[in-house]
Design a protein around this nucleic acid. Structure first.
Length: 874
RNA sequence: GCCGGAGUGGCGGAAUUGGCAGACGCGCGGGAUUCAAAAUCCCGUUCCCCUCGGGGAGUGUGGGUUCAAGUCCCACCUCCGGUACCA
């Protein structure tokens, strides 16, 4: 091939690196700060940053990144000051496991992976402002993650004001000793230490949050998880439950994601009810005084106080503190054995799919407050100590779990709600084995309920709550499924806690001025079987002598990977600030994030944690908005060409590097968007890539002379003919609207239609071709920059004005109209777009085919849908 | 089990939100170009029947509403994703 022919070919291998260098060297996408941006409106578009894995990018990453890049480029052309950054969520297990095997410091591995993934991301031509790159493992970043932790440690939650406040504003009850005072304060901190059974994963050598355990095994790796009591750091996210729930209302997120979050928070409204313990069974009443209320009682939580008359027994969690007190001597041995068994059960056993109920009678009895019935008290591990009060009243006739338990242990079942007919037929009504006893969990009308008989369920709930309060038996109550966030991990590669434990058992936080607290170097990164974190081995680092001579040990747990990603969106606004996490004015300008794109796998964890931190920072006055992420879009999963999840073992993994080297970045970008709707799951097809590649070549050849590389002679400064003008404006309209609506696949289709049309023209109006290049540029920026330059422009098109469309010019002059008889199309006629209804009707009836089909019958009714069809009912 | 999402040609997917089903692309068939191939261009391509002209069926299944249903209503089937006794 000669030099001259080469010049004119669509050579992405030359074009793409050329423009990537141009953008980087010219800082094309450097984002001005608020005071430098003139009066442009701001637009903050964020991608979920990746973990820099050794395997590099997979094709799922560029999907979201391409979508966000298209919107970013589009918004710039529409005159917005766009913040579009990228960074690295770089703490985490794989680098640490590699360190365990090889002794290589995780920072080294991480840096190598980051460099590789940055190269990959840059090879796709995304318009990130690389001057704002952040890395959660940089000490300059860790410093502020630790700083936020200190803010949590030094805050409490004011229930009355529903907000976090500095700990020094915590009202402390009078008459406490110094030790009591300190304990009181520690009990109110938003970050606190807690000794409790946790999810210990022996294989990973760490504890996991509830959210990281799926079906009894670890989310990462699928290793078994067991319950083990350990001292842990917790964050009091539960105090924010109500606000995290309320805040969802104002967010532009999909309903399904909002629902996932609200289900996770799991708000239940009901009542707490006190059951007196019956004294006649050899049991000695105790005084455990919950909040100054009645003593010698067991308190339960129920969402169905209207079924109190149907409570035939009570179940306590085996871990409930009153179990030993109410157990009679006769049952002591059996109860102890049951408790022992329950405590050993792993989470896997607890979620046993058979869900066969187990339990043990304690010998104790309680008195039902509504009818003074004496009911037996059982223990069972289907009642969780960590939810509600750790004890329930059992209403087997109206709760499936209670029903199962009662059936198994032959406990009485009393029906107290009569379903209305519709509900009776529905599936909320379940029959027992004997075919007579049933379990109905829906609403209905009360029966067998004393003075309340006859009430509808909702009304009953109101009345009984008032009755309980009046008689001092209980009150309305709200419970959440959400638990406090277990925030410590027994790992090396994470943020160290800025915390010291003194010899005399006090917990001291570092001063802000002592941050960052850096990780020590280690020889051996291996976790220990005892659960002691690797950091404990760094004795020089761990042991500290304070200014007053007190000896102390550093906290050796580290923070979980979620920590860094909780606030990274703030750091992008001000990545190099060393006196604040983010400058107040900058966050005020940029927040909230206008568009957040990422995978749905982060629907609960990352998004919930992050919203929690944001609310805390808001309460303390560091950020101005209640919520960080205003609009959220979840890109769908990309499957292998075999319609299966991509995985090494299936051998169906597509490497973006290969696609880029074979077809170029623009084809890769375009194909990812052409595959289908952004949010859909869809399979990869190399032939599909080839299809969009051909389209880009056609676009190139529609403008460039393949011999010389100059513009084709047919590109002329003339006005477009009518059809060309119409298609151009239709295309601008469709592409504009589709980008706004994230429907990139159909935008591309329309541009293909444009190219198909223009390629047939012998004279191609230059202005039309320029407009086309501009609207294609957000999707295929390298190709378009090159074409733009060859069309005679010296500046990058990144900030060129987005072409406007005129609705009039996009309209068809003549329209093909379908003529139907009773909904079946019999003929098609072409008619002026502005034809009146009357002429349309006449023309329709004049059709020979229609006349033939009518066969002399008279039209009873004629429906004319303007510029679409005529339907004749004969 | 429960909660979401989805079922449209050989394939990926389009369809003014009730108005011509199958845009656009892939694949396939035919033709042009070529010594030949690749590339490119043109034509065709839902299925069935038919000699041309044409006719019939059709958006997971069965019913319904309507002049008109992929779209709305009722019942069900299948696949994918999430979840696990939260009283």
């Amino acid at each position: 091939m000669t030099e001259s022919t080469d010049k004119g070919r669509y050579d992405f291998n030359r074009i793409e690196p050329k423009w990537q260098d141009h953008w980087l060297n010219n800082r094309t996408f450097k984002t001005p700060n608020p005071n430098e941006s003139g009066d442009k409106p701001k637009y903050y578009i964020l991608d979920m940053f990746p973990y820099p894995s050794g395997a590099g990018l997979h094709v799922g990453h560029p999907e979201g990144y391409t979508a966000s890049d298209i919107v970013s480029r589009y918004k710039r052309m529409r005159g917005f000051n766009v913040l579009h950054p990228m960074g690295w969520d770089a703490f985490g297990l794989p680098a640490e496991q590699y360190a365990v095997q090889t002794g290589t410091h995780p920072a080294v591995t991480t840096q190598k992976n980051i460099d590789n993934m940055r190269r990959q991301i840059q090879s796709l031509g995304f318009s990130y402002d690389w001057d704002r790159e952040v890395n959660t493992t940089d000490v300059g970043y860790v410093k502020w993650t630790q700083w936020i932790f200190l803010k949590m440690f030094n805050s409490w939650f004011d229930e009355a004001q529903q907000k976090a406040r500095p700990i020094d504003q915590l009202p402390i009850p009078d008459g406490l000793s110094d030790t009591e005072k300190e304990a009181y304060i520690n009990n109110h901190r938003l970050a606190y230490e807690h000794e409790a059974p946790v999810n210990w994963c022996p294989a990973l050598g760490t504890v996991l949050a509830n959210e990281e355990v799926i079906g009894g095994v670890s989310e990462r790796g699928g290793h078994p998880v067991v319950r083990k009591p350990m001292r842990q750091w917790m964050l009091r996210i539960t105090q924010f439950a109500e606000r995290l729930l309320d805040g969802l209302d104002g967010l532009d997120w999909s309903d399904s994601i909002k629902k996932l979050q609200s289900d996770w928070i799991g708000k239940s409204i009901g009542a707490e009810v006190d059951f007196k313990i019956d004294g006649g069974t050899g049991f000695q009443p105790v005084n455990h005084g919950q909040d100054g209320r009645a003593t010698d009682i067991i308190r339960v939580f129920t969402t169905r106080p209207d079924t109190l008359f149907g409570a035939t027994y009570m179940v306590m969690s085996p871990e409930h503190p009153l179990v030993d007190t109410i157990t009679t001597d006769e049952h002591k041995a059996a109860v102890e054995a049951y408790k022992e068994m329950a405590s050993k059960k792993s989470d896997l056993d607890r979620t046993d799919l058979t869900k066969d109920k187990t339990g043990q009678f304690t010998g104790g009895y309680a008195i039902n407050p509504v009818n003074s019935e004496k009911i037996p008290i059982w223990i069972s591990d289907y009642v969780l100590i960590s939810y509600g009060t750790g004890a329930i009243m059992s209403v087997p006739a109206h709760d499936e779990r209670d029903f199962e338990f009662a059936t198994k242990f032959d406990l009485p079942i009393i029906q107290v709600v009569e379903p209305d007919n519709a509900a009776r037929a529905s599936s909320s009504c379940k029959h027992g084995q004997d075919g007579r006893a049933t379990c109905f969990t829906g609403d209905g009308t009360a029966i067998n309920s004393g003075e309340f008989t006859g009430l509808k369920t909702p009304e009953f709930k109101e009345k009984i709550a008032a009755w309980l309060a009046e008689n001092n038996f209980g009150e309305k109550a709200v419970n959440y499924k959400l638990r406090d966030w277990l925030f410590s991990r027994q790992r090396y590669w994470g943020e160290p806690f800025p915390i010291l434990h003194t010899e005399d058992g006090r917990v001291i936080a570092l001063d802000e001025s002592e941050l960052p607290l850096e990780l020590p170097a280690l020889e051996d990164y291996k976790p220990s079987e005892s659960g002691e974190p690797p950091l404990a081995k760094a004795t020089d680092w761990v042991n500290v002598t304070l200014a007053d001579g007190t000896k102390a040990r550093r906290e050796t747990n580290t923070m979980p990977q979620w920590a860094g990603s909780c606030w990274y969106y703030l750091r992008y606004m001000d990545p190099k600030n060393d006196v604040a996490a983010v400058d107040f004015e900058k966050q005020k300008y940029w927040l909230p994030i206008d568009l957040y794109i990422g995978g749905a796998e982060h629907a609960v964890l990352h998004l919930l944690y992050s919203r929690f931190w944001h609310k805390l920072l808001h309460d303390l006055g560091f950020v101005s908005t209640q919520e960080p992420y205003q609009k959220l879009i979840n890109q769908g999963m990309i499957l292998g060409s075999d319609n299966q999840k991509m995985s090494k073992s299936r051998g169906n993994v597509i490497n973006p590097d290969d696609v880029v080297s074979e077809y170029g970045a623009d084809s890769m970008r375009l194909y990812e968007m052409f595959m289908g709707p952004l949010e859909a799951t869809k399979p990869w097809s190399m032939q599909g890539v080839e299809g969009v590649y051909r389209f880009l070549q056609r676009a190139w050849r529609a403008i460039i002379n393949p011999e010389t590389g100059d513009l084709l002679d047919c590109i002329q400064k003339t006005d477009p003919d009518e059809p060309t003008e119409r298609i151009l404006h239709q295309t601008i309209k469709k592409v504009t609207e589709d980008i706004e609506g994230f429907a990139f696949n159909t935008a591309i289709s329309q541009m293909m239609i444009f190219v198909n049309h223009i390629s047939k023209l012998e004279i191609r109006p230059k202005a039309a071709m320029e407009k086309f290049v501009l609207i294609l540029s957000p999707l295929a920026p390298h190709l378009c920059e090159e074409l733009w330059q060859r069309l005679g422009h010296t500046d990058s098109l990144a900030y060129a004005e987005w072409p406007a469309f005129e609705a009039d010019k996009a309209k068809e002059k003549e329209i093909e109209l379908a003529i139907q008889i009773k909904g079946k199309t019999k003929d098609k006629i072409t008619i002026a777009a502005d034809a009146t209804e009357e002429t349309t009707q006449q023309m329709a009836l004049a059709s020979k085919k229609v006349q033939a089909a009518l066969d002399g019958k008279k039209a009873k009714k004629i429906i004319v849908i303007k510029s679409r069809l005529v339907n004749i009912v004969a």
